[in-house]
């Protein structure tokens, strides 16, 4: 099995799906000739031609709006938004049309499409390149929101997303695009949308994370090696719909719950998860379910970003606090 980074896995998956299905097309700003600013589509235009992998005008609303029309007319579009911070001109299309088309037409038209975008902080980027905006999409009925954390899951989840009859927002943790390699099968496989992964079993505390934060929790766990804390680490993998059962089962076992996310704290995904824990595992709790999340401030520019970024040390500290409550 070849070793791949997350970005390799993205490219490998799109390539494979374009090869297997003539209806799959990919496009966006600098996606065609150059292969994207992160090279996620490198070589695809050369391989599949300018009609199936192409550069669009610099216009996010047209990128997503045209994807709606393409999906209605038989294609499976994979539009790329260069950075999640640039998606806002297309929010009108995503919320008023992409999310609603199936319901509006009572299932006559579904919109199979995958809207890919790199997201998250920690790459010392300029303004609008570091936000974690999964909640904005997860709040909207009709959308699915998927975030991989490993190369293997990237391929399996992206394959599932492309084959899904409904639109999927595929958020890629750009901070770990090239952070590590993993063996990734060359053949097609699926990691189902809506299923979390228990990365590590434990019985002291349940810690949930996704995207780049999974690695940071793993690093935190290493810092806690000498403590008597057995962390059960869950990679949520899908934000909407999310795997309630796996979370609840885990909390019933551990009685303690910590969610770690870079998205802003207030009204963030952690609030939703904790509400679920309270609703369905309240009597099993031995400590208040807790969030370690991005502060409710505009994510600072690089010279101030270190204040915002959630470090393994902070995570370890929080795990200790919740575990000893």
């Amino acid at each position: 099995m070849p070793l791949m980074t997350i970005i390799d896995a993205v490219k490998n998956t799109i390539d494979q799906q374009m090869e297997l299905n003539d209806n799959v097309v990919t496009f966006g700003e600098d996606v065609g000739f150059e292969g994207g600013v992160f090279r996620a589509t490198k070589g695809l235009q050369q391989k599949y031609g300018k009609e199936r992998s192409f550069d669009t005008p610099l216009a996010e609303s047209a990128i997503i709006g045209s994807a709606v029309g393409m999906a209605v007319n038989g294609l499976i579009p994979i539009p790329e938004i260069q950075f999640s911070g640039f998606v806002f001109p297309a929010i009108n299309q995503i919320i008023t049309h992409v999310a609603r088309y199936r319901n509006r037409t009572k299932g006559t038209y579904s919109l199979p499409m995958v809207i890919r975008m790199p997201y998250g902080g920690g790459i010392r980027a300029l303004e609008h390149h570091s936000e974690s905006i999964e909640s904005l999409f997860a709040h909207i009925p009709g959308l699915k929101v998927v975030i991989p954390s490993t190369p293997y899951d990237t391929k399996g989840l992206l394959t599932a997303a492309i084959k899904d009859p409904d639109p999927v927002i595929f958020l890629e943790p750009k901070r770990i695009y090239r952070a590590f390699k993993q063996e990734v099968p060359t053949e097609e496989y699926i990691v189902p949308i809506g299923k979390a992964k228990v990365v590590q079993q434990g019985d002291t505390i349940t810690v949930v994370a996704w995207g780049a934060m999974v690695r940071e929790v793993e690093n935190a766990i290493k810092l806690l090696e000498n403590e008597k804390i057995n962390v059960e680490l869950i990679d949520l993998r899908t934000i909407q719909p999310y795997d309630k059962q796996t979370l609840i089962n885990s909390v019933k076992k551990t009685g303690r719950f910590l969610v770690v996310h870079e998205a802003y704290k207030s009204y963030g995904p952690g609030a939703e998860l904790i509400a679920t824990i309270n609703e369905q595992a309240f009597l099993y709790l031995e400590a208040p379910p807790t969030r370690l999340a991005g502060f409710d401030i505009t994510i600072p520019l690089p010279k101030g970003e270190h204040h915002f970024i959630i470090t393994p040390k902070r995570i370890a500290n929080e795990i200790k606090k919740v575990s000893s409550f």
Partner: peptide, 18 residues
């Protein structure tokens, strides 16, 4: 907003030679 859907319908039609 619907004008962008029209563009997409037409794009699909064009590359599929419909």
């Amino acid at each position: 907003s619907q004008l962008n859907h029209a563009a997409g319908l037409a794009y699909a039609s064009k590359i599929k030679k419909k």
